[in-house]
């Protein structure tokens, strides 16, 4: 599935919910289902420092595609992190660099990306793209 297709799928998924509480319940479920990074791998170099919730991001290149794994100590943040991983993981560095991530606005999560929310999500997207740039340069 392309990045755009996954984004479309997520937008449709969130459209099913009537109110914001249900959307948050869905985010919490997504957060709970995200494979965790083991405690030993939650190292400082993988930590994306937000003001409140902490996010860890791990990326590996396999067969020309980047596999992301991520975790957060806050469950709603983890749900949002899960969405990012679902959209960007298992794609080539070029695809990731060019991803527009428009689903964030369509789903109504934009306010969580403002710098004042300080949940590390904005920094996480930046870090995911920077990792892609790094792998591209290496490759």
């Amino acid at each position: 599935m392309s990045i755009e297709e996954t984004e479309k799928e997520i937008v449709e998924e969130f459209d099913m919910f009537d109110d914001w509480m249900q959307k948050y319940e869905h985010l919490i479920d997504l957060g709970k289902s995200l494979p965790m990074i083991s405690e030993g791998e939650k190292t400082d170099d993988r930590l994306i420092k937000g003001c409140q919730s902490r996010v860890w991001l791990k990326s590996e290149l396999k067969n020309g595609k980047i596999i992301y794994t991520a975790d957060s100590d806050a469950i709603i943040t983890k749900g949002m992190v899960a969405l990012m991983v679902r959209v960007l993981s298992d794609h080539t560095p070029d695809e990731i660099i060019n991803a527009k991530m428009e689903f964030v606005e369509k789903v109504g999560l934009t306010k969580h990306l403002s710098p004042t929310r300080s949940n590390g999500l904005l920094s996480m997207i930046k870090q995911m793209k920077m990792d892609a740039v790094a792998y591209k340069t290496m490759g």
Binding site: M21, Y24, I75
Partner: peptide, 11 residues
């Protein structure tokens, strides 16, 4: 996590 609680209360 405090962030999660604050986020739900905000809603």
């Amino acid at each position: 996590h405090a962030f999660d609680i604050g986020t739900i209360l905000d809603q």
